[in-house]
Amino acid sequence: PPQTPVRAAMSSIQQLRVDLTSSGDQPSAVLAVYFKNCTLDPTGEILQRVERLGQLFSQMFDQAVGLRCVGLGKQRFTLGVRLYYRVMEAMLKSEEKRLSVQNFSKLLNDSTFHTSLLACALEVVMATYGGTSFKNGGYSGGAGAPAETDLGFPWILDVFRLAAFDFYKVIESFIKAEPTLSKDNVKHLERCEHLTMETIAWRGDSPLFELLRLTHEEGPGEQVEPPST
């Protein structure tokens, strides 16, 4: 049969579900070992964070799509969590090989890292369901539209109160760690990168300005230009 946007989206959703069938909603045995190898075991914090962000995500999602879709947010979040744990495991394996260390205590106790990684996983799930067309300067549309037109990037950053600059940091490693990502999803994440670099990271309240200021204070250099410039 001829390919239509809806058929293509249904196929992508089905593929994502198949890819995540073997991944659990909880950290795998391999991840549990990485957690135990930490100087400070992050297991409790990680599970609590997922629980807290899950409630927040579902609440904001259901609020955005309306009463007729209550419960849908939780389903999407569950898929996102599976992808989050799966990519985290692949990232740690890759880092272990690259750095020859097994103690990732600092990284695994970094709340910003986890929130960014989970946000990236959810962005992939949302893009798979919602398509990847531009609308009103962000992303939205596709098979999930029009009910989900407000859920495109950077919606997730607002929900998790995450700086675009931090979200940006996980994208490349995420793509490297998840070779089954569809071409469309890779393209979507690449567009999130571009949108961040071109506009979002340079908004007045971005932590980037403070980081640049600190960097300049540490060494000789020019004054950081104000956001308006």
Partner: peptide, 21 residues
């Protein structure tokens, strides 16, 4: 199968990006 441009060098990864090297 995609043309994403990987920019990280061999000595850079998620650990360095989150200042955990």
């Amino acid at each position: 199968s995609h043309d994403y441009h990987f920019g990280l060098e061999d000595n850079e990864g998620i650990s360095e990006l989150f200042d955990c090297d």
